[in-house]
């Protein structure tokens, strides 16, 4: 029996899909397991594993909030991420605009310096920054968690992303603004920014997630429980021997991850494109 081209194509398609599904298992499985285990009791977790809990233990989700000030920590992460995103948008788009459109002495040198900052990992400067923050009296406050991402390599990346986008706006539009009597600030605010919504959205998305997922900085700068951010809080569900309290830790992790995943599923296209944009820059 010989196959028609059409049949062969269908079979190939099916094989491909099955292969992709197999590869997808380790990508999906952890999320499913995380959520399901968050509903299990401490004893069931160590029993015969199954994806569906035998008994759904909703109290896990109450205990998460009793074990440590989880609501407060959740809020900390949220407001810090919003603050970082807002500040990054303003500061990086201002600088990005000047670098894209204005002529000034030192522009080339500044670009070079900022480019170099793009390359240097936070781990390199974290030690002096620790002393700097301590000297400024900002230890165990949220200030470093806001300042360092805004002015660190992430902020620089956002600046370059904005600059790249501004470069693509037709110059004549800004010149028309100039003729209409706008100051450079006015051109930035009333022409360049309204026309850069896709770039602003991309910067917002990646900045929010960057701050939301930040770990090293909170670990170094924050010591009191009620000032923890989510990643720090998640790592803190341990018993007195330092061993993880799996059922609570996984319930808390679900609480931290699932809302982000839901937003991601709704806006996946936009979010993926944002990362593509920033990745090409980085």
């Amino acid at each position: 029996m010989t196959l028609t081209v059409r049949q062969a194509r269908i079979i190939a398609r099916i094989c491909w899909t099955v292969a992709l599904l197999v590869v997808a298992v380790p990508f999906v499985f952890p999320f499913l397991w995380m959520v399901s285990s968050g509903f299990k009791s401490a004893t069931e977790i160590f029993g015969q594993p199954s994806l569906i809990p035998r008994v759904w233990r909703w109290q896990n989700y109450l205990e998460v909030f009793e074990y440590q000030p989880f609501a407060r920590q959740y809020f900390n992460s949220l407001y810090i991420a919003v603050a970082v995103t807002g500040l990054t948008l303003v500061i990086s788009s201002l600088a990005g605009y000047a670098l894209a459109r204005m002529r000034f002495a030192g522009a080339g040198l500044l670009m070079l310096f900022l480019l170099s900052a793009l390359m240097v990992p936070e781990e390199v400067t974290i030690i002096p920054n620790f002393f700097l923050i301590r000297w400024m009296g900002l230890m165990d406050t949220h200030a470093p968690l806001i300042l360092l991402p805004v002015f660190g390599s992430h902020g620089v990346m956002a600046t370059f992303l904005m600059r790249q986008y501004f470069l693509a706006i037709p110059k004549e539009l800004e010149e028309a603004g100039k003729m209409d009597g706008l100051s450079p600030f006015g051109i930035w605010w009333r022409i360049a920014l309204p026309m850069s919504r896709p770039a602003l959205a991309a910067v917002s998305i990646i900045t929010f997630l960057f701050s939301w997922n930040l770990f090293l900085e909170p670990l170094v700068f924050i010591s009191s429980l009620e000032k923890f951010t989510l990643p720090l809080a998640l790592s803190n569900f341990t018993d007195s021997y330092g061993l993880p309290l799996w059922h609570l830790q996984l319930a808390a992790t679900s609480l931290a991850v699932v809302p982000i995943l839901i937003v991601y599923l709704i806006a996946q296209r936009q979010i993926i494109e944002s990362f593509a944009l920033s990745g090409v820059k980085g």
Binding site: V23, A24, F27, V28, P30, F31, W33, M34, S37, L209, W212, N213, F215, L230, P231, L234, S235, P244, W246, Q249, L250, T253, A256, V257, I260, L261, Y264, L265, Q268, I271, I272, F275
Partner: peptide, 20 residues
């Protein structure tokens, strides 16, 4: 969407789940 999902997930959460 599936292959990209871990990228938006925090590294901490990812590590916790895999350790489990």
């Amino acid at each position: 969407t599936v292959f990209f999902a871990p990228v938006v997930t925090s590294a901490v959460a990812w590590a916790i789940v895999w350790r489990f």
